[in-house]
Design a protein around this nucleic acid. Structure first.
Length: 347
DNA sequence: TGCTCCCGCCAGGGG
DNA sequence: CCCCTGGCGGGAGCA
């Protein structure tokens, strides 16, 4: 029996085993390299698993995260259609819309503690009430969905979109998503999943890893699409990319460039005075630092339409003035509203 | 030693 | 009933 354990055979040739080669981030890069082309329409999970040489299980992880930001849409069992990075702005807009609705909902039900318990329509709902009204079986389904990687991904993104902070540690994000629950086990599980998401987002260059200047603890900064090079994120199949994975690319010298004004009640960190994102040398040419600095100097946590923004994306058509107004709206919103994104299944 | 996160078990559910 | 789906956490790799 134990001889069938694949891990045992791996152990036998441990010297050939490299954990980084198996990372979800690298797998995501390879996945994108495989499908992020013009003309790609349909994706079969079996096909993807075979081509990438991984188990289906890992494909599910990638696909669920990508679907949460609009890059993929599930068509049928085993089948997804490719939407590409151009679909991200719309997906983010939808998330922002949800935040707005949740805000409105909170305003109306100001005694409600929990803001973001979502129903399947993406709208807010009072989970406790819903749960009381639903048959047990349905609650079970909801419970599972509420804990899904996809929903967690959306809520993780919302933390960036609705906040005026520059970076979030995974611990903080997990605590936010867990709400009032202070269960160490749930916390560990949540952080594990957030690592998965962060790895995928990092490989897409939607976020980047930085370190808290004081504690040195890892945190993540939202870059948005502008962090991605011309034809999508840095693609992999080489290990230099995977080195961008956590920790290895952050130097102490870089840390000193960060200053904090204050920490918020989220234990999130205040605005960065002189934001200089940490990018490995190998990626510097892919990175529009000027644009990032400008963006951050103006204090917007709004994503910026990157080179992928397609003509079909609705917001592309808005005027510059309108864009500025929208950003200002979001800044105002962020300054007064800090919803709590929680996967209620943890209760 | 703590952080990171791969890996695969197994429950749930759709076809 | 089979197989797809994906939550979950043990435990190994790594800095």
């Amino acid at each position: 029996m134990s001889s069938l354990d694949p891990r045992e055979s791996q152990t036998q040739d441990r010297c050939f085993y490299n954990r980084k080669e198996k990372s979800l981030g690298l797998l995501c890069s390879n996945f994108l390299k495989l499908y992020n082309h013009d003309g790609v329409d349909s994706i079969g999970l079996d096909n993807a698993a075979i081509k990438l040489g991984v188990e289906r299980r890992r494909i599910y992880d990638i696909v669920n995260i990508l679907e949460s930001v609009g890059v993929l849409v599930r068509k049928a069992k085993n089948q997804y259609s490719w939407k590409g990075f151009g679909a991200i702005p719309r997906a983010l807009d939808e998330l922002k819309g949800e935040i707005q609705r949740e805000k409105f909902y909170t305003f109306r039900c100001r005694n409600s503690v929990n803001v973001s318990d979502e129903n399947q329509n993406g709208g807010p709902s009072n989970s406790k009430t819903d749960r009381q009204d639903k048959p047990l079986a349905l609650c079970k389904v909801d419970n599972r969905k509420e804990k899904s990687l996809g929903l967690l991904t959306k809520n993780f993104v919302k933390l960036f979109l609705c906040s005026d902070v520059d970076f979030i540690s995974l611990d903080t994000a997990a605590a936010e998503l867990l709400g009032d629950l202070h269960d160490p086990t749930a916390m560990r599980t949540k952080v594990r999943r957030l690592y998965d998401i962060a790895n995928v987002f990092s490989s897409m260059n939607l976020i980047e890893k930085i370190r808290h200047p004081d504690s040195g603890k890892p945190a993540f900064r939202w870059i948005g699409l502008k962090g991605s090079p011309k034809n999508g994120p840095a693609t992999a199949l080489n290990l230099t990319d995977s080195k961008r994975r956590f920790g290895t690319d952050v130097t102490n010298a870089d840390l000193k460039r960060y200053k904090l004004e204050s920490s918020s009640d989220w234990q999130l960190y205040g605005k960065v005075n002189e934001p200089l994102p940490m990018k490995p040398e190998s990626l510097k040419d892919e990175y529009d630092q000027k644009s990032m600095e400008h963006h951050l100097k103006h204090g917007s946590m709004d994503f910026v339409y990157g080179p992928f923004t397609p003509a079909s994306v609705p917001n592309v058509g808005v005027s510059d003035n309108e864009k500025v107004r929208q950003i200002q709206d979001w800044e105002n919103f962020a300054s007064i509203y800090r919803p709590r994104y929680r996967n209620q299944g943890t209760f």
